[in-house]
């Protein structure tokens, strides 16, 4: 790493920033998955999608809760309900509308492969015991999310002509949002020095290798990596979709912020 460090965040600010990045990814993704409840392609899959959504929202809540303790906020809800879109740190991929089942599975697969390698590395790196404990607990469920989505990529890719086309389109459409999974900013560089984060740019190679192998097995082609890549979400520059998602998620809580909703 030759990048000059100019970050002036305190240790406390740094760990909160890292916790929120992980948590926001999971809350927003979980929210999108929860939209399937009652509308899945088969009853068994309704249960499966809701399970993954519950895991992800649960992971987010645990990470927020820890951030709230460190920062002295009342609870986890502060982060979910009282921040605006420019304060959310999630990658854009997870905020895109749910699309059809192929789109949902593709996003879940790409994100789960990323989460798998990220958590594996984080567990080796993070020295903070409480943080590491959460990561280990969540890692087990991430493995299952990866298995579930990978199996579906195989089935849709190597299923019928229609399913093949749908999921190939989904990979082609979502690919431009994969770039920022592996981009590093100053916060992350500083966090690495404090053993709070890992160099995500190093995750790109194993991620791509895994995705490539799965796509080959699924008779799908890897999208062109040399294309426009969306960036900026980690700094709060999102797609237009996040604002609508938050408007829906936050409206009741924000309309009556003094009421007890727990």
């Amino acid at each position: 790493m030759s990048k000059k460090i100019t970050n002036t965040k305190t240790d406390k600010e740094l760990i909160i920033e890292i916790l929120l990045r992980l948590a926001d990814d999971r809350l927003i993704h979980g929210h999108r998955l929860s939209e399937w409840t009652g509308h899945g392609p088969e009853l068994e899959e309704d249960l499966a999608l809701a399970n993954v959504a519950l895991d992800m929202i649960g992971h987010a809540a645990a990470l927020y809760r820890y951030a709230a303790v460190i920062e002295g906020n009342p609870d986890e809800d502060y982060y979910a309900y009282f921040r605006d879109d420019i304060d959310f740190k999630n990658v854009a991929m997870v905020e895109l509308p749910k699309g059809d089942f192929a789109y949902t599975i593709t996003r879940q697969f790409l994100f789960s492969v990323y989460s798998y390698f990220l958590y594996e590395k984080l567990i080796e790196t993070v020295e903070n015991e409480q943080f590491n404990g959460m990561l280990q607990k969540h890692f087990k469920e991430i493995k299952y999310h990866l298995r579930h989505s990978r199996e579906w990529v195989l089935r849709l890719g190597d299923g019928t002509k229609e399913s093949h086309e749908r999921i190939q389109n989904a990979f082609d459409e979502i690919w431009m949002y994969t770039g920022e999974l592996f981009s590093m900013d100053e916060t992350e560089h500083t966090a690495i020095e404090k053993n709070l984060f890992v160099d995500v740019s190093e995750l790109k190679a194993p991620w791509l290798e895994f995705v490539k192998e799965t796509l080959e097995e699924a008779t799908l082609s890897l999208p062109d990596d040399d294309q426009y890549m969306f960036t900026g979400s980690r700094q709060g520059r999102h797609t237009e979709h996040l604002g609508h998602l938050l408007a829906q998620m936050q409206f009741l809580r924000r309309s009556y912020p003094d009421a007890d909703w727990k």
Partner: peptide
């Protein structure tokens, strides 16, 4: 589900 007023 998408509008529930707390994470809990």
């Amino acid at each position: 589900i998408t509008r529930a007023p707390s994470l809990k």
